[in-house]
Amino acid sequence: MLDPNQKAVVIGISGCSSSGKTTLARLLRDIFPNTFILHEDDFYKPEAEIPMKDGLTNWDCPEALNIPDMTSALEHIRATGELPATFDSKEDINSIGPCPITTDFINTIKCRVADWLQPSSPGHQILKSPQKPLKICILDGFLLYSPPPLLPATLLSQMDIKLFLLVSKAKALQRREARDGYVTLEGFWKDPPGYVDKIVWPEYVRAHEWMFEDGDVEKARLRGDVRERLGVLVNSKKEGEETKMDRDFGETLEWAVESIMRELERLVLGKEEEDGQKEGEKEREDEKEKKREKEAIALNSFAMKKKWAAGQRERNARELLIKKAEEQQQQQQK
């Protein structure tokens, strides 16, 4: 359950660079009310402090980020429901290209959420309550869920819902190379040749191999305890024995929206626990009903046996009377 004093719920969206995180975050901001975005990229250190790897600036490692500042910002957001007053986003300036899904599809999803927000539905109590409306902060970042020592547990604890987007190396490379570059504190960054192969993908593997069987992020066979360990929800989809890496973005949006609504109901309303209690009560009632049925059958069986015994005694008595009458008749004839 959510802390009752919390003013905003933080939803993390993570995955490899160019997996669709920012596109998804901006769509969700438009779909859900009272929603704003915090970008992990706004917490990069100055370029002079970014580590080097193989002669290249390594923007994709934990050491490139100011983790304490990001944690403090999340603590402020959860406590107040607002971005820090001094916060200034550079990431919002960056272009993410055309939207991969149609306006009609987005409107369909918006209608679904609008129904969930109606006064008679759970969403209204969560996000529209006049007494205590909850805000949503979407944290968009390439490095959010790795367990210690890569990331401190204090950062992980600031995220209430954790979504993770899968992407193949080929698709990540294609999308990243299509970008013009990135706005930074000092100006503008454009990937040098081979940057994805030498920096982006190896760092992604290092930070996320714990999530996959045998550490193989390409086959994407998720470990069974991913959700149990850190509560991470993954947009995986099985196709036969294989996991589909590059899902249709419409499917990803639907998955994210449904996951958020379900998790908000669980965190704020305790719906999963309540449903579990109701299910437990139903099971107990079913057991009682079965017991009553068995008792009724037993009672009926006993009553039938008793009735049969009484009938048998009557038959025996009649036979005895007949036998005695016959004996008397025989004696009289003699």
Rank of each mutant, 00 (worst) to 15 (best):
D180K: 15
L155I: 01
A170R: 13
Y204H: 11
L166D: 01
A207M: 03
E213A: 12
I199G: 07
A207C: 14
D197Y: 07
L165A: 04
E209P: 03
P192F: 11
P192W: 07
G215Q: 12
Y204T: 02
L166A: 09
M159I: 15
V205E: 02
E186L: 03
A153Y: 09
E209Y: 12
V200P: 01
Y195R: 04
K190Q: 12
A153P: 00
E218M: 15
E218Y: 11
I161C: 05
T184C: 01
L156Q: 11
T154A: 14
V205D: 01
F212I: 09
K169Y: 15
P193E: 07
R206P: 08
L173D: 12
L155M: 01
L166M: 08
V200S: 04
Y204A: 00
L165M: 11
S157E: 14
T184L: 05
V183I: 15
Q158D: 04
G187D: 08
Y204L: 05
F212S: 13
W189Q: 00
A172P: 00
K171A: 12
D197F: 08
I161K: 09
K162Y: 13
R206Q: 13
W201R: 08
F188Y: 12
D191C: 05
P193D: 06
S168D: 05
L163M: 05
V200T: 11
R179G: 01
V217N: 09
A178K: 10
L155K: 01
A153G: 11
I199S: 08
M211K: 04
M159D: 02
E203T: 10
T184K: 02
R206I: 12
L165I: 13
G181I: 00
E209G: 06
K171T: 14
M211D: 08
V217C: 13
E218P: 06
E186M: 01
E218V: 15
E186R: 06
D191L: 06
M211V: 09
A178V: 05
P192E: 11
H208I: 12
T184R: 05
W210Q: 11
T154M: 00
L185W: 08
E186F: 00
K190D: 02
K171I: 13
V205L: 04
D180L: 14
Q158C: 06
L185F: 07
G215M: 11
F188R: 04
T154P: 00
T154C: 06
K171C: 10
S168N: 06
Y182A: 07
M159W: 05
W210M: 10
E209K: 15
Y195C: 08
Q158F: 01
G187L: 04
